[in-house]
Design a binder for these strands. Structure first.
Length: 163
DNA sequence: GCCAACGTTGGC
DNA sequence: GCCAACGTTGGC
């Protein structure tokens, strides 16, 4: 299933991912987000990359899950910004998946455009007060965002449920 | 920079 | 286990 990962471009941007080709999504310190990475994200799942606290914020690219979650070693490193004194080797607490670069979108899809787009009103990203940095995205939401990216119209709603 | 919304912490 | 205080997120 598709996902969305938020990142602050000042910290790690789509350009950084394009350069690195793949990266461990380390530094996530929220249990719900960790659980999505640990239990939900499967190798091959597509991932929207979203720039938060950017001007403007929006979806900038696509990645895919390239390796399943494992211990986030940055939690064990006292010199790392994401050090967690409660984490141990036996119980690292935090986990992260590896993602690989797929593509940069031809243009950033601003959050305002997303808000104005029919069919994706229920996207987690667009809900008030939500700040989760790892979010599930439905197949249809993913498809609509990709069509926005390619400048074509979103598909008509399907009747009934997929699969 | 503001501030609403949310998660976490810690006293009790 | 409650909940007030605090810290963080992130759009605006």
């Amino acid at each position: 299933m598709p996902w969305l990962l938020k990142t602050e471009p000042d910290c790690y941007s789509i350009d950084d991912l394009a350069r690195d080709k793949r990266t461990r999504w380390n530094g996530v310190r929220n249990y719900q987000a960790r659980n999505f990475m640990r239990d939900g994200m499967k190798v091959g799942d597509p991932v929207l990359i979203y720039h938060s606290s950017a001007d403007p914020p929006g979806v900038v690219g696509v990645a895919s899950v390239s390796a399943a979650a494992e211990a986030d070693v940055t939690a064990l490193d006292p010199n790392d910004d994401h050090f967690d004194p409660k984490a141990t080797k036996a119980n690292p607490i935090w986990m992260s998946v590896e993602v690989q670069f797929v593509e940069r979108l031809p243009a950033l899809i601003e959050i305002g455009l997303l808000r104005a787009t029919k069919g994706i009103e229920a996207m987690a990203l667009l809900q008030r007060g939500q700040r989760l940095s790892v979010q599930p995205v439905t197949e249809r939401e993913f498809e609509i965002v990709m069509r926005l990216a390619r400048g074509t119209k979103p598909p008509k709603p399907r009747v009934g449920r997929a699969k």
